[in-house]
Design a binder for these strands. Structure first.
Lengths: 255, 255
DNA sequence: ATAGGCTAGTTGTATAGACAAGTAGGGGTG
DNA sequence: CACCCCTACTTGTCTATACAACTAGCCTAT
């Protein structure tokens, strides 16, 4: 039985219950790749919901990348594995935990100072404005992976310096303590060679290949809230991405 | 006047006409960041469409990242620039043209041969199966940027070897000639140092920093159709990404 | 002055129905 | 056998309506 009863008393929307149930069927293997997902009509009839609600459930499945719809044919389970951790905005801590490593950090410096020109530009503030600057060595299972330097406008979280515990996640602190939820991160990655100081901190040879990241994070409204420059060992760190085509909303390539 | 009349005779869906019109207003600056987009009710009343259609237009705007909705408050223009070319699946030719450079390629080899183990695994075929292997130097304005080696299952496009013009885009040929539309690309980027042969072809010093890419592209159904290994000069090439948070379909973080 | 409630406006969810457009298959006709 | 049409089923678009949940501002009673 692919479909099961809904909880109409729940605060969870019906379409979301349906989506989660189908998602479970896919993950458990009851629905295999290439197989058709129940049609809008069938969901509608079997669960006693309107076709638009069934449709919303299927559409959300497609947006997750789990399925795809073909007009006139049906909706089918995609063969692409979800498990390959294609990237989202993840904090270092989250990312490491997901890979099963124990994330740790060593704080190199933590201070309030005027923004550099580059930082001011990225954060849309004046160079006279102060920023909180946090420089850390990032480690997984006590192996140094990279050096990260975060900049946050001091006005956003005035008492962060006193209250932040460097062992915890900066992202989570921003979210829980200040209600700052990061929605989008723009990232530029370059490849380069480790300089002397960096090599010493990362315990690698000078001139080893490294990644150089420049990241700016924004809240939903588009206001920038964090600017990060970091350097990572290329022998221990890869960039994994999933790129999607166009993402037109109008069904299939309309123009 | 933010809203204008619709063409009800057109084959273009109403919600898409509305979305495109609003998108134009944002691009032209008539709608600035932070400003509210017309509400569902207003669109509905002014254009004589149902609220659901107006809603679909706004939702599609949000999916493009141009706007964001807040329950009880409204829908607002996001401050994040579209222009920064956050990545999608772009062929090399498309990417270069977008940056205003003249893309060129020099074909190093073009042949049919049995798949290597790595290629077979990526393409979900047997090592006994044959693949079309195309190795090219990628250039922008006659400057060598990288070396790309594409592998395509020979069964997909049997006569490609005879008919392909290396000066054109491989992606566009696949699409127009064989109806193969790439939907998703998984990419792994590593940083490394140029080896002797690579350095010679790219006209850089041996040991210069380079990007190493491993890309697999899939059609909508999830079937892999192309596997590419490439190497790019790090001094002329950067990776630009936009990462988005979670993308839950249920409005805001429901769990 | 403050706390509370009321109201108007907004998005989120859900229903029921309609027509259009595309696919696949069966069956009849040539 | 080959071709065409018709039918059943699918997703895509659109309408009209309803209620829920949330926001912001105004107004009143305390």
């Amino acid at each position: 039985m692919i479909l099961e009863a809904l909880d109409r008393q729940s605060v969870v929307p019906l379409y979301y219950q349906i989506q989660q149930h189908l998602l479970g069927q896919v993950r458990s293997g009851a629905l295999k790749s290439g197989q058709p997902v129940p049609s809008e009509q069938e969901i509608s009839a079997r669960l006693g919901v309107s076709r638009m609600t069934a449709r919303q459930a299927l559409k959300s499945l497609c947006e997750l990348g789990v399925a795809y719809s073909q007009r006139g044919k049906g909706t089918f389970v995609s063969a692409i594995k979800l498990e390959k951790d294609f990237r989202r905005v993840l904090s270092f801590s989250e990312e490491m935990q997901k890979r099963g490593a124990r994330p740790r950090s060593k704080v190199l410096s933590f201070e309030i100072s005027p923004a550099s020109v580059e930082t001011a530009e990225a954060l849309h503030i004046s160079p006279a404005d102060k920023v909180i600057r946090l420089r850390r060595i990032r480690m997984a299972n006590s192996l140094a992976l990279g050096i990260e330097c975060s900049h946050i406008p001091a006005g956003l979280c005035p008492d962060l310096v006193e209250n932040f515990d460097p062992r915890t996640s900066l992202y989570r602190t921003l979210a829980s303590r200040y209600g700052i939820e990061i929605a989008i991160t723009d990232e530029v990655a370059e490849a380069g060679l480790a300089k002397a100081e960096e090599a010493r901190l990362l315990r690698i040879a000078k001139g080893s290949p490294v990644f150089l990241f420049t990241r700016t994070s924004y809240v939903h409204s588009g206001k920038p809230v964090e600017f990060v420059k970091s350097i990572y060992r290329a022998d221990r760190y890869k960039i994994v991405n999933r790129l999607t085509r166009s993402r037109k909303t109008a069904s299939e390539g309309r123009n």
